[in-house]
Design a protein around this nucleic acid. Structure first.
Lengths: 208, 208
DNA sequence: GTAGTTATTGACTTTTTGTTCAGTAATGAA
DNA sequence: TTCATTACTGAACAAAAAGTCAATAACTAC
């Protein structure tokens, strides 16, 4: 007699991460309110009851999704800036291209659009995201620009403004892709755009 | 005896526009799903029943909001491009600054964030928006860039890419402001950013 | 003023979906 | 093999918000 292969397994440790992953996928696609917990559960391979075993309610699940997804992205980049030697425009390209790379493959990059959509409905979470991601990456790029100015490689501009000008286009293109991939007749390649954007940028930052 | 001042008035003609305006305000702030029709009605100074007198259901109201809000913005700009004489960078600045201006005052500019958030839930509407606004304004700017290249004012770049690089930052900053105005510790002035972005841009587009 | 018309109301019904929990079956220890 | 433990299920419950409609009050024409 073969083992009667159980209809489900007990996997206490793996569940939370799987549920969060499923929730991220659906939240990022449909938004918080339009996502049904039944669907999250189904995608995670469990039932709704199980979701409530690990998360207090829908809102707490949402917060968990954001918190888990957001954190680890920036540390690598920050050390990269600390340790860099050589032309600052090279570092800028390194940062932009690796960012574009990650955007194309990591599921976590869907979080930008999600936060943009839900920020006003979750003010505390919005603040967390702004502090932990937006401001932090802005500072990262502002830092690179500042050093480039100090070294004489870039002309004197407001580093914080420049940081916005550096980050905004990439995020926007990514968000656009997510929102309008079905209807945009001429989709852009993220990495190609990053390259284009970078070229424009460094020439704009150089001395005249 | 004075007129007993009626508790409400019959204003068949004015209602649709008022309801749409109220709906736009709330949809743009909270999103489609999180907006209650009771609140739309209240903000429009009517009751829910009245909303259903003029719109078949919530989804149709949403479509009406987008369709009514989106259309008139671009015509002015398109004639401007047709009739322009002189430096193309001047026209570029004219377009960018007037756009930033409109973004700061017109309630209709909330539509970008709304469409980004809801596009995947309303594919047909997303296509309408992309055709009528996104692609159209992209073409507008691509046109200016192209002519600038032809006249020798700008170096040879892919006009469509450049158009994206021109439009994306402004839209992104606006969307950011809407989403994170409560938590961003250092809010940007849209017009100041537009100026900064423009300066970077034209230097990036010029011949080396 | 009066009567007929209809724009508007507000209470009601329906639908949807978040939330709960008693029961069930997988697991590990004895 | 048996038993105790508990992760998980699924059906049932409750709340919230969409959608309906008979009654009402504002308006218009006479």
């Amino acid at each position: 007699m073969n083992t009667p292969l159980p209809r489900w397994q007990r996997r206490k440790d793996a569940r939370p991460a799987e549920i969060i992953q499923a929730a991220l996928t659906l939240f990022a696609d449909k938004g918080f309110a339009a996502t049904r917990l039944d669907d999250v559960a189904k995608l995670a391979g469990v039932t709704k009851g199980t979701v409530y075993l690990y998360f207090e309610n829908k809102e707490e699940l949402f917060k968990a999704v954001v918190r888990e997804t957001v954190v680890p992205a920036l540390e690598f980049a920050e050390t990269l800036v600390e340790e860099h030697q050589g032309a600052w425009s090279d570092l800028l390209w390194q940062l932009l291209s690796s960012w574009a790379e990650r955007m194309e493959h990591a599921t976590s990059s869907g979080i930008s659009r999600l936060m943009i959509a839900e920020a006003t409905n979750f003010p505390e979470l919005a603040r967390f995201y702004v502090d932990e991601v937006v401001v932090r990456s802005r500072r990262l790029f502002a830092d690179v620009i500042s050093r480039g100015i100090q070294s004489g490689e870039f002309r004197e501009v407001d580093p914080m403004m420049a940081a916005r000008a550096v980050t905004a286009p990439l995020v926007m293109i990514k968000v656009w892709k997510q929102s309008f991939s079905l209807c945009d007749t001429e989709p852009v390649d993220l990495k190609a755009f990053a390259r284009f954007h970078f070229d424009l940028l460094v020439q704009g930052l150089r001395h005249r």
